[in-house]
Computed example of a mutant assay.
Amino acid sequence: MLQSMTGYGIATRETDHYAATVEIKSLNSKSLDLTLRLPRFLLDRELEIRNLVAKSLIRGKVNLNIDFTRPRATGTQGSIVNKEAVTIACQELQELSLITGLSMEQVTAVAHALPGALRIPADTTAATETEEETPWEELLPLLQQALDRLNQFRRDEGQALTSEILGYVDRIRILLAEVEKHDPTRIEQVRQRLNTHLADISGNEHFNPIRFEQEVLHYIEKLDIAEEKVRLVNHLHYFTETAGLPEPTGKKLAFISQEIGREINTIGSKANDSTIQHLVVSMKEELEKIKEQINNIL
């Protein structure tokens, strides 16, 4: 079944510690053209994310946005002040004030001015780093969920495109059947014209029957479209068969459509018949519709 390159997928997750949204949009492109918008803490994961997207989507102009926010601290979530730490700090500053004879303001100023005078407990830093590292393990399945939804969107669109494109292929088959039906009439008309010309020139003293026979055979060979009709039938069958394959076949279908166009053009140029020319024009119209839709096929 064909898949469209157009798609959309979104996945969200909200916890007490963060809210995350992964949104992916995909449009037509000859190759994978990927644009990423990532939060700062995921920048070192960019190559991994690109590889995941490339493996899943293969082709398309893709925009991927990962939005990540943490809730602001509020009164309902508890105090934002570490009372114990502040109390200990004040006690230590008061002790220094008594020892040095400086005021609290002066002691505080000196503590800020001297490198290394103030220290942050090691466990606070570790907790912050852990908090920043944890979400990627939770965002990874969120990214996969968004990719799965986009691919499902593509399959749904592809199912509609498959019916539409195969309808155009069937229309070409019907028109080719009309060509086949009219071809004996065309051949008879050609035969009548040749007989008329033969009657006109056979009485000429310079008439060479051997040379005339050679030219007639060459003329008939140029008008014969039997091989083109057979090849066109085969190409149409191959196109339908390829459209039903499970793997992406957009590029292969584009090549087959080129071969279909070549046979249609040859039939039109060799037929030398107005009825068949009209049928050929109609076949070309259907083929253009196929090519237009193939541009959106993965």
Rank of each mutant, 00 (worst) to 15 (best):
E178Q: 14
T6W: 01
D273W: 03
E48T: 02
F239T: 04
G9Q: 01
Q293K: 09
F212M: 11
F207P: 04
I66T: 01
L98Y: 13
H182P: 00
G101L: 10
L161M: 13
N51C: 00
T242I: 06
I210S: 15
I165F: 04
D44M: 09
K229H: 02
L166F: 03
E259V: 08
T125W: 14
G268Y: 01
T108D: 04
I24F: 06
V230F: 09
I225V: 02
A226S: 13
P141C: 07
L34T: 05
T69C: 11
E46Q: 02
T15E: 06
T275E: 15
Q159R: 13
F239V: 06
E292L: 02
H182E: 11
S56P: 02
A127Y: 00
G60M: 12
L143W: 04
Y8G: 00
K252Y: 11
L42C: 00
R119Q: 12
N28W: 06
Q192G: 09
N195R: 10
F255K: 06
N208H: 13
L232C: 02
T249W: 00
T130Q: 14
D148H: 08
G7V: 03
L143E: 02
D44K: 12
H112M: 08
A117T: 07
Q145T: 08
A11R: 03
T130N: 15
F212L: 07
V233K: 10
L287V: 06
N272V: 01
S274K: 14
P135D: 00
H278S: 15
E178M: 12
A73K: 15
K252Q: 13
I99R: 15
K270Y: 01
Q258N: 12
I264Q: 05
D33N: 14
S103M: 10
K30C: 10
T125R: 14
E285L: 12
E14S: 15
E228S: 00
T125F: 15
N65T: 15
N195P: 04
V53L: 08
